[in-house]
Nucleic acid binder design. Structure first.
Lengths: 112, 112
DNA sequence: GTCATAAGTTCCAAAACAAAACGTAGGGGC
DNA sequence: GCCCCTACGTTTTGTTTTGGAACTTATGAC
């Protein structure tokens, strides 16, 4: 089964995962919940490549989870802010945060 | 950044995602929460290939989210049941279920 | 004019994935 | 005894996605 076919699955969990169920997308959302909004902020914080980041942002905007917003006229600069739809996933990330704290201790020092 | 490097990230969300943050793993958990436990049940329900399913189950067992259980001596047959650790992710899936119901309507008939 | 900033895009090799066949260890019918 | 069935995987082959790094575009600062 292909990723895209998931969006019409009978199961609402599967449909949700068709939007946010990959490696990096939820890390972008985490950054949004932490107040980040700019391309360079996401890139620096998450460690994902710019290539993938651009694609995921595009997808999140298409799905209405984020909104691409012009924040500077000259030079033209865009950032990304959560929509109400995007905000409503926050509780899922909170569960993952608590679960990680409890069950996934850090074994050595992180770099980021 | 590689997938595996995420497991020692400073962020607990990232560490959680190093275990459950891929395309199919959360669908396996969904099936577990629905009472499924057998390899063939997961394969039929989720639509993922047996190849990937086997790998994800192995990983979930290694991480202590599922437990591989001998349920038949002859022939030897194993299935997979949630541990307490695995149970504690259920609330995250519940959020995704509600979000999917609200924000991701089915556009055409599903096949599964 | 030259350097810096910010949001991307392009290129190529490496890794992950999909699909389908195959393996293994028994059980059941005849 | 022989053949097909069930169930948990593994192997193989070709395609798709990803990772890493360089490049682009538009503008402001010096």
């Amino acid at each position: 089964m292909k990723w895209s076919e998931l969006s019409d699955n009978w199961c609402p969990v599967a449909r949700t995962l068709s939007v946010v169920g990959d490696r990096w997308t939820l890390l972008i959302l985490r950054d949004c919940y932490l107040g980040k909004s700019k391309f360079e902020e996401f890139a620096a914080s998450s460690g994902m490549t710019r290539h993938i980041l651009a694609e995921r942002l595009k997808r999140l905007v298409e799905e209405g989870v984020l909104e691409r917003r012009l924040y500077s006229e000259a030079p033209k600069r865009y950032d990304y802010v959560l929509t109400e739809k995007g905000e409503e996933l926050r509780p899922a990330l909170r569960v993952m945060k608590d679960w990680g704290k409890k069950h996934m201790p850090v074994r050595r020092e992180a770099k980021t």
